Computed example of a mutant assay.
Amino acid sequence: MEPFVLEKADNGCELLALAPFTRAYPQLSAGFTTRLGGVSRGDFSSLNCGLHVADEPGDVVRNRRLLAEALEFPFDACTYAEQVHGNEIQVVTKAWRGAGNDSREKALQAKDGFVTNERGVYLHALFADCVPLYFYDPIRQAVGLAHAGWKGTALQIAKALLETMSAAYGTKPRDVRAAIGPSIGACCYEVDDTVIGRIDRALREADEEATVQPADVLCYEQQPNGKYKLNLQQVNRQIMIKAGILPSHIEITGLCTSCHTDLFFSHRKEGGRTGRMAAWIGLREA
């Protein structure tokens, strides 16, 4: 069953709730925006949440405010970063609450993963084909969010985030609930030997350090033209399992951002001129 369920807020935002998380843990909010229900125009129509694309900044901030309103979050609790396709993780405390919500200059700099155990701090990351990764430790009440393009995936950002949660909060991977959100699927994602070489190396390195070996799963398939169809969602799932998350604790979407440009922005499908969706996760204040 698809874990991301479409809901329409009273203000018109159309959002995908991470239903297995939010139904089991009412204190948790997690999900993914669509491109629908905002004020942006043209190529960025309409719920573009990315300030780093060529959209009007005022429209983007208005969209982010609409998102916060739809989720019943204070806007000054919504925290954003400048992502760089790396694997650096930021521990977010209340001192960072609201960073980057209306300005790139005030965002968390050069970070692609974020963790917090502070209630009322809502983590946001931006996507237009890359893979959103969600983490929740219900024992220690900590959450994490990561942005995993092929570079972040090759750098095992999922493993880096788990290690940060362990160091910061004492998280044990077997306790973690994880989810893999809407992104470009193997159906639409063709890559070359360089990318596959990096992915193979990451999977081998994960194997060497793994305490659990998942069943063999096809993560890519060579095409007649010599290139490969790559399933980044499945690669990240394999890395999560090798890092100690139980397979039964991982939700994975069936939604491809490139196949569904009526619902999502897709950098590859739309030739690079497009908006960004936001993934979010956070623990509500009592």
Rank of each mutant, 00 (worst) to 15 (best):
E205D: 13
A179V: 07
P173A: 08
I157G: 02
D129H: 02
A142C: 12
I199K: 01
I139M: 15
D193A: 14
A206I: 11
A110H: 12
G197P: 04
Q156H: 10
Y189W: 14
C188G: 09
A125V: 10
G181T: 00
Y122S: 04
A179N: 03
F114Y: 10
L133R: 01
V143C: 05
L126N: 02
K111Q: 12
P132F: 02
D175M: 09
E118W: 06
T211D: 14
F135R: 04
C187W: 12
Q109S: 12
E208W: 10
E118G: 05
G120F: 07
I180G: 00
A158E: 11
I139G: 12
Q213K: 15
A179G: 08
I199E: 01
R140Q: 13
A202Q: 05
L133M: 08
V115Q: 04
T164A: 15
L126F: 04
A107I: 04
A186H: 00
S183R: 00
E209A: 15
S166G: 12
K151R: 12
A146N: 01
L161A: 09
A142Q: 03
Q213I: 15
Q156C: 14
G120L: 09
D129L: 01
L203I: 13
T116K: 03
G149R: 00
F135A: 06
T171A: 08
A168N: 08
E205I: 12
A210Y: 06
L161K: 03
V121F: 07
I180W: 00
A107F: 02
G170L: 14
T153H: 03
V115A: 06
G113K: 01
S166K: 11
V195E: 01
F127Y: 11
L162G: 01
P182R: 02
V176F: 05
A125K: 09
G120A: 07
T194Q: 13
G181F: 00
A168D: 10
L123M: 09
S103M: 09
A202G: 11
I196M: 13
I184P: 00
E190W: 01
Q213V: 15
F114R: 03
H147I: 04
F127L: 05
G185L: 03
D137G: 05
H124F: 10
D192T: 11
A146T: 06
Q141Y: 13
A148R: 00
V195W: 01
Q141W: 13
Q141R: 15
A107E: 02
L145T: 00
T153P: 01
Y134C: 06
S103A: 09
K111A: 08
T194N: 15
